[in-house]
Structures are given as structure tokens and as C-alpha cells.
Design a protein around this nucleic acid. Sequence first.
DNA 1: AGTCAATCTCAA
DNA 2: CATGTTGAGATTGACT
Length: 591
Amino acid sequence: MSSGSVGGGGQNGRVRIAVAAGPGDGGVLRPLDEDGTPAGPVQDVSDLVAAVREWERGEAPRWVWASTARLYPRLLDAGLRVGRCHDLELVENLLLGHAGRHGEPRSVRAAWARSRGEPVPADRPPQEEPAQASLFDDGAHKAADDIEQIVAVHAEQQRAMAVLDGFGLLGAAESAGALVAAEMTHDGLPWSAEKHDGLLTELLGPRPSGGLRPRRLQDLADRISAAFGPRTHVNPDSPAQILKAFASAGLPVPSTRAHVLKRLDHPAVPLLLEYKELARLHAAHGWAWLDTWVGGGRFRPEYVVGGVVSGRWATNGGGALQIPRVLRRAVVADPGWTLVVADAAQLEPRVLAALAGDRAFAAAAAHGDLYEALADAFAGAPSGARRLEGGGWGLEDGLSARDKAKLALLSAMYGGGTGEAVQLLAVLKNRFPDAFEYVEAAARAGERGHLVRSRLGRTCPPPSAGWRALTSAGDDDAPSGSRQGTAAQALRSRGRFTRNFVVQATAADWALALLGSLRRRLTPLGVPSSTPRLVFFQHDEVIVHTPAELAGDVADAVRASADEARRLLFGDTPVVFPMEIAVVERYADAK
DNA sequence: AGTCAATCTCAA
DNA sequence: CATGTTGAGATTGACT
């Protein structure tokens, strides 16, 4: 697997430039060969942005820098975008993980110290990172030190990655992801504050002043109290008070969860369910959220690339990866623009099919609805099982063959499949033995305390010391029955984690490759002042904000990127990764 | 007055 | 025998 063209942009794939910021608006550059050997002298520049712009117009090198998240926003603010980079902190993090050293400091300074056997400085927590402006304000001697360390750490990373299959692509994809993340924060997701406010007013009543409850919530709260009796006062925000009120009414309940309340026959129940739903909207995505996170018609969350162990992204604030469906009505394209919303259909089972190289399974995943294609295999399986709302499996007749296929796969990937789904798993095992065995092997590896990896080499964290102590006991310790039970539980839990990790993390590999490829394909579309932009990414879904007349080209680019990602990860697998693409004015209209 | 765990609901 | 993964973020209520 070559590092391909993910994150590519320039004609010459080999030129790299190490860059350190400071002092002031200046910086220090040094050209490198691909293996990290210096290919020219250190250059001091008084205007770093101008120097980067100049190089970018010419050779379009791969920029080697400590952290995209800290450096790139400054370039974006100056109206400059770069084609490719190597993010030293992100790559260091991947390499540490591969070595089973998750969580060790990842800064350039730390990597430098580590390689020289010196004391390794802890990473600074994000909130203590120097402000953006001061990054460009370091002393001249510091920038000189920085460039020396950057060059050295980069060379070591290139050496380390060269012997790990797929790792070059992983590092390139992670770095390209960091560029996308910074650009998405810069560009923002189109967000109509007016539509959002209208929605809140419609559901909650007009915006209240001070910390008061909106009218609709107060009204519901009053009716909830009344439903428990005259002169009773129940604060619906307090689970304890709700439990007490139901107990007094002769209806003791273990919790206030929605599915528990739904089973009760009491006039307060529908009011409480409505209250809880609206109160959450108000608390999590109400006017306060709007004031904090939306400005100038854009929602600008901060993404954390590789923030989840599986390689999925996390966010730092704003909850960008949990936008409630109702609020998608507020995501509206600019006039004359449109949103291309694309999500990968049934991504994780397709990833499993491709990973396992299961011929029968891959053939089913070669086109169309994967579960439907598998349905025949499950049509005769014993009456299915279905997840009950409260957890646990329950018998439920009337499952379609397609539902049975879906349930079997989800059980295999998530580690369920005890209970009634066991028969469906048996069908999966018989008909698709390689796919079954792939996740089983990952689970067994986990239970033995081994590490498992994604297709490109992203590695799961090792089990904790506590886990090892718990699960290795059992010899001389004469553990008690409950301790054995706890140990068995810990083993199963670890197995579920590693079982899921190989699939989820490879799906994240694929999504990252798609993102890098799509970014590169979008760049030449449109004219500089009016170019399609990636504005949202959520695990297996992207949104591109584009001039309306380019929507077709964008959709083509999305499909081509999905296919390129497939090829980069899995070569000539027959498994396809179809994208469901909607061209809409509002996100809510996508599905 | 701050910290923390537990609980709840949102997303994939 | 127990009974599906990864997260964010708000809130309550117990704690220091």
C-alpha cells in the first residue's frame, strides 16, 4: 500500500518543507527529502504566511509541522490553504499507539526527548496551550531549536512508518483529516439562527428573560405537579422527586427513564415524557447554545482529529457530532448554494466483508442493500430476536429475513449474540465463516490481552493494569466465586471492545481516506471565490456546501472518493461502498 | 463553592 | 451466568 494521493494536491510528491513559527510573523523553513534528510539550508523568513503562499503556488510541498490544529488556522485566516501536510503530533500519537504506548506525550519536544533518552515533558492540556497569536511570537532562538527538533522527529517517524504496512497512508490520511478539520471550523456549517430561534419558539414558547423556564416548559411542569394531586409540587427536573411522587401514587419505579415511564398508567407520564424531550432541547441546544456557537450564519465547532480511540473524531464543544434531528432544519444553504449530504450506506458490515475477505459475504456486499442480499441466508432461521427498549433480548415474532440478517451482523460486530440471537449467529457462522471468524479472532485476542489494529494500523489501547491483575488471577489466589465472575465479565468486556474495534477503526480509516480524497477533488471545482467546501463530517457522513450548479460535480466527486478509499484500503475487493447522496437546501430534507 | 460519579439522552 | 460499541454534554446529588 503506497501513501497514495490522500491529502495530495501538488504535482511533485516528494518535496517536503519543515516549518516552525516565530518570531513574530516570521518563521523558519527547511526543505527535506521524503525520508527526512535535509535537502537545503535553514531559511529564516520574516513573513511566514507569504513564504508558505509562495511555496504553495510553486512546488506545493508537503508541510511538516508540529500541529495542524495550532498552526493552520493562522494560515486560513490569511486566506491561504495548503494541499498537504505531515502533522507530527498526530503521527507520533499513532506510532505510540502502535507500540502499545497510548497516552504518552506526543509533542515534538516529547518525541525528541524520548528518542534521546532524556526526561520527557508532559503535554500541555489544550486549555493551557498558548493562544494562537503568541504561537507566532516566540523568540528567534526558540524557532531555531524547534526546526531542528521538527526535522529530527520527522525523520524518525518516516523511518518508523516505512516498516509498518499501511502506516504511511494512515499518517497521510490523519494529517489530511487535520487540514479538513481546521478548514471546517474556519468555514463553518451554514446555520440559520433565525430558523433555529423560530423552531425553539414554536416548540418551547418565546425566549424567556433571565433563567426562567420557557412558557411551554413551565406550563408542562405545572400540569405534571397537578397530575400528582392538588397542592403537590414536583420538580420535573429532579429524578428523585419524580420517583418519590410515583411511589406516593402507588407506582414504585426503579428509574425515570423514558422506556420505564412509558409502561406506567398515570396521567403524569405523557406530560413528563414531553417535558423531558423539550427540556433537553432547551438545555442542550436552546438559545444559550445559539448565542455561544452560531455567529455570522455559521456554526463553528472545534473537531478533535483522532479524539476517539477508534480513530473517529471527537469535538471540543458545541456537540457537533450530536446535532438532534429536529435542529437539522436550521442547517440551510446560502442563497444560490446547496448542500450535498452524503452518507456511506451500511458502512461497518461492508468493512467487515472487505476485511475478512469472505467470498460469500463479499459477493452479497457487491451491490445494493447488503442486508437484503443476505436475507435469503437467514430466511429459514428460527423466529428471530429483537432488542427490547430497556436492554436485553426478547423474543419477537415477525422479524423479516432482512431484519434477521441485520441483527446477526450487529451481534457479531458488537459482541451481542448470546440470548436468542445465538441461532442467527450460528447461521452467520455457517454461511459466512470467514467473516464470523474475523471478529471472533479479534475478540479472542482481546481476551488474551493482545492488541488489535485497524486495516491501516491504528491500534487499540492496551488493557489497564487493573484488568490484567483481575484476569490473570485464578492460580494461587484461590479467587472467590464473585471474583471469578468479575474476571469473566472483564474478559468478555475486553473481547467486545477489540471485536468492535477492528471494524469501527477500519471504518474510520475508510472515512478518513474518503475525506482526504474528497478534499483534493473539491479543490479544482468552482472559482477561487466560490468553491465547494466540506462543512461537516460525522463518522460516515459528509456535507459539502456548494454553489448549486456544481452539485452534480460534487456528488460525482463523493462517489469517486468513496471508491478511491475502498481501493486504498482493500485493493481489488468486490465489496462496494455505495454513498447515499441527497442534494438539498436544508440538512433536514436529506433523509 | 468546586469536583466527581452516576444518570439521562443525543449522535454514529 | 449475563446479556451490544464508541462518544458529548447537561443535570443532580454526594462529596471535599
